Computed example of a mutant assay.
Amino acid sequence: MSCGQLKRLKELEKENQRLRRAVSDLTLDKLILTEAAKGNF
């Protein structure tokens, strides 16, 4: 693997981590809002 490829891989891994965290946060928000809408708070 070349130096450029390794750098790109690290960038993609960082972006993937950021996106996973965003999805996790949004999923949690959705669950909280769903429960609140049901009146289970």
Rank of each mutant, 00 (worst) to 15 (best):
K10R: 08
A36D: 08
L28P: 00
D25F: 15
N40W: 13
M1C: 09
Q17N: 09
A22I: 14
N16D: 03
V23N: 06
R18Q: 10
R8K: 11
K30I: 04
L19D: 00
K30F: 13
L9V: 01
S24F: 13
N16T: 14
K30S: 12
L9M: 06
E11W: 06
S2E: 02
G4W: 08
R21V: 08
K38T: 07
L19R: 04
L9I: 04
E13H: 06
K10L: 03
V23Q: 09
R18E: 11
R8V: 01
K30T: 08
C3S: 07
G4H: 11
L31Q: 13
S24K: 12
L33V: 11
L28S: 04
L9K: 05
M1Y: 14
E15W: 06
S24A: 14
Q17G: 04
Q5W: 11
T34S: 12
L19W: 02
L19M: 03
V23L: 11
R8Q: 10
K14A: 15
A37T: 07
A36C: 10
K7E: 02
C3D: 13
Q17C: 10
N16M: 08
K14P: 00
L26D: 03
D25C: 13
C3M: 12
D29C: 06
E13W: 01
D29N: 14
A22N: 04
G4I: 07
L33S: 13
I32S: 05
T34W: 10
E15Y: 06
I32F: 09
V23C: 08
S24V: 05
R21A: 13
G39R: 01
G39W: 02
L31H: 13
L26Q: 06
Q17E: 14
L19V: 02
Q5I: 15
L28W: 05
T34P: 00
S24E: 09
R18L: 08
V23G: 00
S24Q: 11
K7Y: 03
E13N: 04
N16F: 05
V23W: 12
K10Q: 05
K7Q: 05
R21D: 09
M1P: 11
L33A: 14
T27A: 08
E11F: 03
L9A: 06
L28A: 07
L28V: 07
A22Q: 11
S2C: 08
F41M: 13
N16Q: 06
R20E: 08
L19Q: 02
E15G: 02
K30V: 06
G39L: 02
L12N: 00
D25I: 10
L26S: 06
L19T: 00
A22K: 09
L12W: 01
F41K: 12
L9H: 04
N16L: 10
T34I: 09
N40Y: 14
K10Y: 01
D29I: 01
D25H: 11
M1T: 13
L19G: 00
D25T: 05
D25N: 06
T27K: 12
L6S: 03
I32A: 08
